[in-house]
Amino acid sequence: MTTPAILLFGNANVDLVLGEIDGWPAVGTETMVERSETRPGGSAGNMALALSGIGVPHLFIGSTGDDANGAWLRSQFDPRFCKWIIDGGDTTVTVGIVHRGGDRVFFTTPGHLQAARIADLLKALPPAPHDRAVATIAGGFLMPDIAAGTARLLWELSALGWRTAIDPGWPPSSWDDKTRTIMAQWLGLADYALLNAEEIKGFTGIEPHEHAAAAVAGMLKQSQALVLKMGPEGARAYRGGETFAVQAPEVRVIDTVGAGDTFNAAFLAALVEGADLHAALSSGVETAARAISTFPRRYDAG
Rank of each mutant, 00 (worst) to 15 (best):
Q224F: 03
I200H: 10
A269C: 09
T294E: 07
A245E: 07
V285I: 10
I6G: 05
G88I: 00
P110Y: 15
L16S: 15
R180S: 01
N11S: 10
P79I: 01
R132V: 15
L157H: 01
N196M: 02
G88C: 00
V134C: 04
A26T: 09
G111Q: 06
G23F: 02
E233N: 05
Q222D: 03
V17H: 11
G41N: 07
A214M: 14
L220G: 12
H278F: 01
K201V: 07
A213M: 08
I182P: 01
V246A: 08
T181C: 03
V14S: 06
I61P: 03
A214P: 07
M230V: 06
A288C: 14
A193I: 09
A235T: 00
I85R: 06
E199A: 01
V56E: 14
T29D: 13
A212S: 13
R239N: 01
G260M: 01
I254P: 04
L49H: 07
D131L: 13
E273F: 02
H58F: 10
A138T: 12
A213G: 07
S223H: 15
Y192S: 00
G28E: 08
I54S: 09
D103H: 08
G89L: 06
D131G: 15
G205M: 11
G240P: 07
F81I: 02
P232A: 01
A135H: 11
I6Q: 07
P110D: 12
R297V: 10
S36E: 08
G149D: 06
G28L: 11
T243H: 08
D167P: 14
A266N: 06
I292S: 12
F106V: 13
A128G: 02
V246S: 07
I6Y: 03
Q185D: 15
T181H: 06
A275Y: 13
M219T: 09
T179G: 12
A288E: 12
G302S: 13
W162K: 08
T136W: 03
L154P: 04
I200E: 10
L49N: 09
A214W: 09
S52N: 02
P79N: 01
N46Y: 09
G240I: 00
V95I: 09
L7N: 02
P232S: 00
A48I: 00
S223K: 11
A190P: 06
A190M: 09
G188V: 03
L281C: 11
T94F: 07
Q224N: 05
K83G: 10
R117I: 08
K229W: 14
I200M: 11
D276Q: 08
R39C: 07
L228C: 05
P168L: 14
R100K: 02
M143I: 00
L73K: 03
R80Y: 05
P249D: 13
G102L: 06
L154C: 02
P232T: 00
I86A: 14
A288I: 15
G234V: 05
G205I: 13
H58Y: 08
E199S: 00
G88M: 05
G149A: 05
R163F: 04
F106I: 14
P168A: 14
G241N: 05
L18P: 00
I292D: 13
W24L: 08
D255H: 07
P208F: 08
I118T: 02
